[in-house]
Design a protein around this nucleic acid. Sequence first.
RNA 1: GCCGGGGUGGCGAAACUGGUCAUACGCGCCUGACUUAAAAUCAGGUGUCCCCGCGUGGGGCGUGAGGGUUCGAGUCCCUCCCCCGGCACCA
Length: 755
Amino acid sequence: MEHYQPETVEGKWQRVWADERAFSTPNPAPSEQPLERHFYMLEMLPYPSGELHMGHVLNYTLGDVVTHFRRRNGWIVLRPMGYDSFGLPAENAAIREGGHPRQITERNIANIRRQMRRLGWAIDWDRELAAHEPEYYRWTQWLFLRLFEAGHAYRREAPVNWCPNDQTVLAREQVVDGRCNRCGAEVEARQLEQWFFRITAYADELLEDLGSIDWPERTKAIQRNWIGRSEGAEVLFRLPDLDLDVPVFTTRADTLFGATFFVLAPEHPLVPRLVAGTETEAEVLLYVRRNAAKAAAERIDPDKEKTGVFTGRYATNPATGEPVPIWVADYVLMEYGTGAIMAVPAHDERDFAFARRFGLPVRQVVAAPGAEADEGSRYVPHADEEVLVDSGRFSGLPAADGRRAIVEWLRGEGSGAPAVSFRLRDWSFSRQRYWGCPIPIVYCETCGMVPVPDADLPVILPEIENYRPKGEPPLASNEAWLNVPCPSCAGPGRREAETMDTFVDSSWYFLRYCDPHDEEKPFARELVDYWLPVSQYIGGIDHATGHLLYSRFFVKALNELGLLGFREPFARLFHQGWVQFDGSKMSKSRGNVIGPDDLVRQYGADAVRLYILFMGPADEDMEWNEGGIEGMVRFLRRLWRVVNEVADASEAGAIAADDALARKAHETIAKVTDDIGRRFQFNTPIAAIQELVNELGRTTNGPSARFAAEAAVTLVQPYAPHVAEELWERLGRERLWEQPWPVADPALLERESFE
RNA sequence: GCCGGGGUGGCGAAACUGGUCAUACGCGCCUGACUUAAAAUCAGGUGUCCCCGCGUGGGGCGUGAGGGUUCGAGUCCCUCCCCCGGCACCA
């Protein structure tokens, strides 16, 4: 018997699969009845910023097991692959390594593709795509134009996050703890004109539809937090001096009688008007100037003592009719609510801290039942049961009823209405960088912002030498490319020089896979309607508020435009855990990346695939520990030896009804099927197969040994497809990757009863 | 503070809707076989404490802590501790 030689076995079967295009899945012909059992298996596509690491190996091996399992259970499985090849990660890799981004990106793609093939993943290579190729980004531009026409993409000046190191604007989703999530530099606040997607238009639906998708609870919780819906009321405060009503948003309308002052955010547009020509003007405007320049991180520090300045003006509390002083303070944020608040120091900690600092009155208007309203200036936290006090005719009402009654009364008075506020902001997607999809817009002196006509797409990203970030878009200094006639009036025009964030590219790639070679349109509606929503998506939870939210927005917006017939992209989602090394997540910047190449060379792809799934539950973080991989190699050698012995020693034949080995084989079939299919658990099937092989090792002859050997080989195939295929052949069978998944005999699964 | 997830041998982890002996499977370690020797391989052992006649022996204690429900709890309930992740001057 030859020894187990993974390199030989793996090379042999990888050639067979490539020659046969064994895992290509053609689209159904238009005339065909929709096939009932089709399955879209998708894993988040990699950034080609270097080479694969063990986190990728886990992600794609998981997808591979599911792909084989579904295929062999009779499903038509679409399992494509591509590269998120535009954007900061790829461009920074180019800057780091020297050379042009295109050259570095394409080299990295070639390398990743080689690694993927070497691991034997069952990928439909006919659908491969890369975001930086004009055949792809042409349609990114096309989709942008549709969103632009629909008013979902717009340009406006707004406070944005600026990364001084990467020299570009970042989306809020790309800022973590006040730092750039790519390079870690502290983010600065800047007021800039930027492109936005109107994701807030879908805030309610993005929240609501979380109920209809099978996602991990923690991911839904993260998105709910991020969207941050609060129900409350908008209340108008009258400014008699300016003859104006200023709205505030509040969730505690029941405390309206306790609103003893009024605060505007420093950026509030009313501030200059309010103080114009008054003696406080200079002081207030100085405060505004100082605080607008403040870094976001500094401004939101909750431990910082509150600052503010009195405007000298008063607003009227609509409930009491009393004038309340108007202050300007940076603890009120322009981005949330209306940028103005009614301050209720007795029942809001922040208002209380501010009132105490500046000696403003505190009036308690809510109390526990039976408790006396306190005369002193005290902060009274919210309690489960409380009633209104000192609130005119609303006094005595339970707080929730009081809230409703007060809003109802305000509505009748024309000075308030129920309102909903969101934390979610529109998605800033323009970047002052080179390596991204050009935004197909031309600025014309007479026509303004003019979309590039569809027929002129793609707007090709020009090859330029000096692509490095410089604070303004690198393309802006490329006059030859920049100057074009206006598509509308043919007068002089200039192209938009900013590029799109790479998250735009990845917000629709799962649609392009369905129709990757279409030259007429981004995708055929009948094909995306056939394959989507994605049956099973697998990727990291780090994309919970980014990619996973943006893609949901894209699908909803494209659905409204009639381009597709569904409202959610990913029906079921699974997050693989982090593969850590030296206690932290593997990443290039930390220098703790373990790649698969050396491991595959030393142990073979099958052992690496088995080990990464055997290490622990796939959705929990794991510490990379190379020691254990030896156990998988031993297992594969034992499997090899035992199955070869069986192939030589035993024939198929009748098996006794009480045969313990046959029973064990059936139990293993049932367990592996249930674990992968229902429980989505991938480590325990390996243990179960090992138990079977251990038992099989004790008797390798007789019909039940042959049955058990076949069971072990067929069950291990999704994990170790190469060695399984080879052993299957030695057992005198063929084409295991196409064989039906085994079925356990329920009669043999009954357990003994006990008292 | 609010929300989500977790805590089981020396280590990675099993135990699925409360039920057969908690720790399967693997790593590591120990012993033995093979070998001049080592590696590899194979066989056996490995929670902890105690008892004896030393065996295919018997018993106590053991799943972050403490209570509870139950014939029976790693699993359910209550209180608490610790760890990880998300949100947070969001009105």
